[in-house]
Amino acid sequence: MSDHKKVDEHTGTETTRHEWDDIQELDTPMPRWWINIMYMTIVWSIGYVILMPAIPLLNGYTKGVLDFSDRDRVAVAVEQMHADRSARSQELSNSSINEIIGDDGLYEFAVQQGKTLFGDNCETCHGAGGQGVVGYPNLNDQVWIWGGSFDDIKYSITYGIRAEHDDTRFGSMAAYGRDEILEPAQINDLVQHVLNISGQQADGVSAKRGATLFAENCSSCHGVEGKGTRENGAPNLTDTDWLYGGSAEVIHETIFNGRNGVMPNWNERLSADQIMALSVYVHNELGGGE
């Protein structure tokens, strides 16, 4: 291959001097602007190496003039965020619900924060807008298992229900069938009784036997009339609002296998002001407010 340049007659462009079957390859130069950008990136990289952590050494690496660190930067950003919020957050943690409602700015702050937190942490269980799914109560209605006052709601959120915390709410619905506390026939009678008191069609004779059994076995938690007691977290069985379901099959399943829904305690994941914001949101924007 010769060293001297070959120029294509038609275009006036140099060729690569390769030739295949009489066809020559043009060596069109890269556009100038493109080459310039490449040189600029080289200059940029030199600057970058000087300013930023870059070159690995035997033990460590060059830290760069700026001593940049992702971890430091984010620590500052998080700190800044807390500082920005801190006045409001402090105020929120230290105010009573009435004071919060009385202060429009603070109330708005609580609701906005509460709404975001609810979306990130609660909707996956309690459903979009808190409307509930089977086993996870609706927080958007007037029916409360453990109580819908501000303090009740805050307690439920802080310590959870049947959660891993010493102060958690606790009440247990035993597995009357699986653990052989009651006979299968007795459970059938109880199902008829629950259907009856919740205003559904039931077998009268069987329900009557069920009523006696209910008074003996269930009324301590669900109350004599079956209207439920909040100390035990035992739901009202006489309304149309069911946690697990009001059909004969589901009621049977509940009595046979028991139920013990768990709501996590949030005091370890969320801060006091976040819990406050959530409580305000659930109490005032969703269904709370007793």
């Binding site: 799914v133 829904g261 996590p264």
Partner: peptide, 21 residues
């Protein structure tokens, strides 16, 4: 880890749309 209960995971993995429509 620890964000949800085991029950929730069973429920969700069995049918995510029952939980998040």
């Amino acid at each position: 880890g620890g964000k949800y209960t085991d029950d929730w995971h069973v429920f969700h993995l069995t049918n995510p749309r029952a939980v998040v429509p």
